[in-house]
Design a protein around this nucleic acid. Structure first.
Length: 136
DNA sequence: TACTTTTGACCTATA
DNA sequence: CTATAGGTCAAAAGT
């Protein structure tokens, strides 16, 4: 895995994709919803993330979104999963930030607080009662 | 200008 | 070795 992947030169680009699509629907609102009508709010943890992927996990029948810390030096990653039609979100943090300062304020201002903190937490969002915590 | 965001495809890991 | 699932990257578009 160290040097596997992406032949930078020579040959050709790994793969091109075919585009045929036309006619696009404008995704309005906020997140993907089904038929509930809940805007679903993104729990801002103070850090800013860049979404780099989204996939539907069959095992739990949930949509998982992949976020990465904006900082290159930061190997922190975040995963958010939610059910199509449920206002509940499960946030899973991975890795640790290299530049502390979770400011709940939108922006990039950081005021040091904690330096290094290895953490791996799973937070649940939603109403007061989580629906069916069993299964899994 | 640069950055972020979105979708598809590709890759890797595991069973 | 193959199949499945999950995970990541890349290009394009929009702001």
């Amino acid at each position: 895995m160290a040097s596997t992947s992406q032949p930078p030169t020579t040959g050709n680009e790994g793969g091109e994709r075919g585009h045929h699509g036309d006619e696009e629907e404008q995704q309005q609102g906020a997140w993907a919803e089904a038929a509930g009508g809940q805007p679903l709010v993104m729990p801002e943890d103070g850090y800013q993330w860049k979404k780099y992927g989204q996939k539907f996990i069959k095992n739990i029948q949930k949509i998982r979104s992949y976020f990465r810390c904006r900082d290159k030096r930061c190997g922190a990653k975040k995963k958010v999963e939610w059910q199509p039609g449920d206002p509940n979100l499960r946030v899973v943090y991975d890795g640790a930030h290299q530049h502390g300062s979770p400011s709940s304020n939108g922006g990039g201002q950081d005021a040091d607080g904690a330096a290094n903190r290895y953490d791996l937490s799973t937070q649940y969002f939603g109403g007061a009662g989580a629906p069916t915590p069993q299964t899994q």
